[in-house]
Simulated assay, not measured.
Amino acid sequence: MSQHFINSLLFGIYPYICLAIWLLGSLIRFDREQYTWKSDSSQLLRRRQLRLGSNLFHIGVLIVIGGHFAGFLAPHWMVSPFLNASQHQFIAMAAGGSAGIVAIIGLSILLYRRLSDPRIRINSAHADILVLVILWLQLALGLSTVPLSLAHMDGLMFETLSTYVKGIVTFQSVANLIAPVPLVYKIHIVLGFTIFLISPFTRLVHIWSGMATVAYLFRPHQIVRKR
């Protein structure tokens, strides 16, 4: 199997497979299994750790996701009058790195809480633990790209990745752009699309509810009343 074929498969075809399953799978689940369209709460068990970890993770990851969309999808003509490629990369690296640290600290608390407490672990589906591990790895991979970015502050890598993401969104053949990119970026990209792939089959599907309403950002905590 040639390197060119693997590159085309992982970065040219696989992203569309993941996105198609994400969209169609979410629609089918919403149509057929609406009662499973949620993130099961374990607030009744060790509430304090849940509040701290959940708040840190959600605040951090929302900034990370928003930064990815704004950084990679913003049109060049909109950004270039204010920032050159190097400055754009530095802002993305500083904001994304800071938010990523907050998110991974929160997620580490949630993962420790779920694995260390026998009561929570026995009430956790395997998919719940798998999702937390995958998200933790994805955040760790994202943070590991910061030193690489610091070593290459010319903005070329950022521009390459931005062009690739824009190409995927606009259905252009851009898989060849990823060939010279360091391995950590490649794994980060593949795992990122894999998260889209598994979302319709896990608790991650509840993200759609957050995307559907701005009020999600100001929602109160779920309250579990004691008898």
Rank of each mutant, 00 (worst) to 15 (best):
residue 143 L to G: 05
residue 75 P to K: 06
residue 98 S to P: 15
residue 115 L to W: 08
residue 98 S to N: 12
residue 194 T to S: 15
residue 49 Q to A: 13
residue 111 L to I: 07
residue 168 I to G: 03
residue 93 M to C: 06
residue 35 Y to V: 13
residue 171 F to T: 12
residue 45 L to D: 10
residue 199 S to H: 11
residue 211 M to T: 15
residue 94 A to T: 07
residue 118 P to I: 03
residue 63 I to C: 11
residue 64 V to Y: 08
residue 135 L to Q: 00
residue 65 I to Q: 08
residue 41 S to H: 04
residue 103 A to D: 03
residue 3 Q to A: 14
residue 116 S to D: 09
residue 78 M to I: 07
residue 166 K to N: 02
residue 62 L to A: 15
residue 212 A to I: 04
residue 73 L to Y: 10
residue 25 G to D: 06
residue 218 F to L: 15
residue 108 S to F: 00
residue 47 R to H: 07
residue 99 A to N: 04
residue 137 L to D: 00
residue 44 L to F: 02
residue 179 A to K: 13
residue 131 V to C: 06
residue 131 V to H: 02
residue 120 I to K: 01
residue 194 T to L: 08
residue 136 W to M: 03
residue 150 L to S: 06
residue 78 M to H: 12
residue 69 F to A: 15
residue 47 R to K: 10
residue 12 G to E: 05
residue 123 N to Y: 09
residue 171 F to G: 01
residue 115 L to V: 09
residue 41 S to F: 06
residue 119 R to V: 15
residue 64 V to K: 01
residue 168 I to C: 02
residue 107 L to N: 09
residue 77 W to F: 14
residue 24 L to P: 10
residue 167 G to P: 02
residue 225 R to F: 09
residue 51 R to A: 08
residue 103 A to Y: 01
residue 218 F to A: 14
residue 109 I to N: 01
residue 195 I to C: 04
residue 133 V to I: 10
residue 207 I to V: 14
residue 62 L to Y: 06
residue 217 L to G: 15
residue 26 S to P: 07
residue 11 F to R: 01
residue 216 Y to K: 15
residue 110 L to C: 05
residue 214 V to M: 14
residue 5 F to I: 07
residue 53 G to K: 08
residue 79 V to D: 04
residue 49 Q to E: 11
residue 21 I to V: 13
residue 162 S to H: 11
residue 224 V to H: 06
residue 196 F to P: 00
residue 53 G to F: 00
residue 98 S to W: 05
residue 209 S to I: 15
residue 158 F to T: 01
residue 144 S to N: 07
residue 120 I to G: 03
residue 212 A to V: 11
residue 36 T to E: 12
residue 44 L to Q: 14
residue 212 A to E: 11
residue 25 G to F: 04
residue 190 V to P: 02
residue 204 L to K: 08
residue 158 F to K: 03
residue 152 H to S: 12
residue 188 H to N: 04
residue 103 A to G: 05
residue 103 A to C: 13
residue 80 S to V: 11
residue 41 S to A: 12
residue 4 H to L: 12
residue 139 L to Q: 01
residue 194 T to I: 01
residue 73 L to I: 06
residue 210 G to E: 01
residue 62 L to W: 04
residue 49 Q to G: 14
residue 15 P to E: 04
residue 33 E to C: 12
residue 73 L to G: 10
residue 116 S to L: 02
residue 129 I to R: 06
residue 211 M to G: 15
residue 91 I to T: 13
residue 204 L to T: 05
residue 208 W to T: 10
residue 93 M to F: 11
residue 206 H to Q: 11
residue 168 I to D: 03
residue 206 H to S: 15
residue 178 I to Y: 01
residue 165 V to H: 03
residue 26 S to V: 09
residue 15 P to V: 09
residue 41 S to W: 03
residue 193 F to N: 11
residue 96 G to H: 04
